[in-house]
Amino acid sequence: MTDSVIIRTDQLKKIYQMGEIEVPALNGVSITIQEGEFVAIMGPSGSGKSTLMNILGCLDSPTDGQYYLDDQDVSKLNRAQLAHIRNEKLGFIFQSYNLLPRMSALENVTLPMMYIKAAAGNQVEMTKKAEELLGIVGLGDRIHHQPKELSGGQQQRVAIARALINDPVLVLADEPTGNLDTKSANEIMEILHNLHQSGRTIVMVTHEPDIAEQTQRIIAVRDGLVELDHTNGRK
């Protein structure tokens, strides 16, 4: 089986302009991630993890450098094109879940399907797929609950289902367990492991070494640079 590359970055730089002052957040990050990998990104606060994730997630563009996602150079795309990439190729899981408050779990999960560029599939199929995914994350009996009626862990599981609805080539998670207690965190990790087992490519930011230990590969970031990149050897 030949490994195909999902992420390749070349000297990614991000400099934030704060009035007169330039704040460098990334100083030349070059990484390559293969299909099917489960990667943890670690590093101290302010080291540039979220900045890197946002660029990998096409929510932001680099100031300099190249980013190839699934063999496509996405570093120079405009906002609408990036939106389509996010919709079709990426699934994002946030620390703070980011569900729409007045919508049910089911509606939240189907949300990305609404923005599919090519004519969207039919309503019945969409709903069926969303129900299936909610079943996979263990919320089959709570599909009509609103976020405020769900626990943090349950909300994060809805967010995972939403990230998967459009069959992304890459799942990105920025501290997905950051707001959760150990038990819920373990449940989320369990789900991510299962996704990995079924062949998903996952990149996750975490502060907790024991969570990072559960992945295949850890990339340590410091001051906007890759400090360490080692394989866990864990399968």
Partner: peptide
């Protein structure tokens, strides 16, 4: 604003 951000994150274009 946050709702707008969420919609954008899952693929809403400026046009949408």
């Amino acid at each position: 604003t946050r709702e707008i951000g969420i919609r954008q994150a899952v693929g809403a274009t400026p046009q949408d």
